[in-house]
Design a protein around this nucleic acid. Structure first.
Length: 292
DNA sequence: GGTAGACCTGGACGC
DNA sequence: GCGTCCAGGTCTACC
């Protein structure tokens, strides 16, 4: 069956899918042109489905198996969150149009950041990006999905991302031996246990009205989440006040404004200070002079 | 607040 | 094939 969901215009599905690396991490995938998104999802009923999402005139259409009305509503809510369909970027676009390095984002209807349906999945994936190469991040994530995610009934080769409850059941030693997350294993295990027990309500953070500074403090209290990971997660939450500065970002800023001399994370923040609450987006979409 | 060393993995490299 | 080095953020201890 087909489920139609409206998006605030302008909207481009391929721009969301290209916004960062999440589309390459299971259970996400896309076609080569980034025109269609596929995602294996475990609904709250426990049922596992695969969605195939594509654009239509008003927003997106999700192709899914026959679902109950409640399940259809859940799919709508999840996709609206994952693709940030209600986001209003009018103010940012007005500023971006006046900056040659950012004007391209307006033409591409960019600015939305792809999210996972649960914030738990976003946090785990972000921890897996830290202190490692992208190839290793993909491998670790794939291991978690294949080893511990609920299988898709129609295609047992595919699985959903494991829930906090499912990961909380796995002994740390077993997870380390099987999933090969390295020193990140205890971080993912502890996070899963805290989320599963209700001690840490990650879903509530999605709708929190706390100031960004307070929210950042909450995120930094999660073991394995440091300044880079917290800024990355704030971006996913639609808070662009901080810049996720990794080693690549330092190189880009160094080559853009400092003649290749080493720079600090503070200097990166200062370079984008004028963008205020849009700082993170300006950094993320900047048309860099030299790809370092 | 800043700094140094440890953490873990896989790829690159030299032998 | 084996050993060594290195890149990649965060944590902890220390100043």
């Amino acid at each position: 069956m087909r489920i139609q969901i409206q998006a605030r215009q302008p909207f481009s599905l391929s721009s969301v899918l290209r916004s960062h690396g999440w589309i390459q991490l299971a259970p996400f995938r896309s076609d080569e042109s980034y025109e269609r998104m596929f995602y294996v999802d475990q609904l709250s009923s426990g049922r596992v489905i695969e969605m195939a999402v594509e654009s239509d005139a008003d927003g997106v259409v999700a192709n899914v198996p026959e679902l109950s009305e409640a399940e259809q509503d859940e799919v709508k809510q999840r996709l609206a969150w994952m693709l940030d369909l209600d986001l209003d970027l009018t103010a940012f676009y007005a500023l971006a149009r006046a900056e040659p390095k950012l004007a391209h984002i307006v033409d591409k209807c960019g600015g939305r950041v792809l999210r996972c349906p649960t914030f738990f999945e976003d946090v785990v994936k972000t921890i897996l990006t830290t202190n490692t190469l992208w190839g290793a991040t993909k491998r670790m994530n794939s291991n978690l999905v294949k080893l511990y995610g609920e299988l898709l009934a129609d295609d047992p080769e595919k699985s959903a991302f494991p829930t906090a409850h499912e990961l909380a059941m796995i002994p740390v030693e077993e997870m380390q031996a099987q999933a090969r997350l390295g020193y990140r294993t205890p971080y993912v295990s502890e996070l899963s246990k805290r989320a599963a027990s209700g001690e840490l309500d990650l879903e509530a953070i999605k709708s929190s009205d706390l100031p960004t500074l307070e929210l950042r403090k909450q995120l930094l209290n999660i073991k394995g989440v440091g300044p880079y990971a917290a800024a990355n997660l704030l971006m996913i939450l639609g808070r662009y006040d901080y810049i996720p500065v990794d080693s690549w970002g330092l190189k880009l800023v160094s080559h853009e404004w400092y003649g290749g001399e080493p720079v600090t994370a503070k200097q990166v923040e200062q370079a984008f200070e004028q963008w205020g609450k849009w700082k993170g987006l300006a950094f993320w979409y900047w048309d860099w002079e030299d790809e370092a």
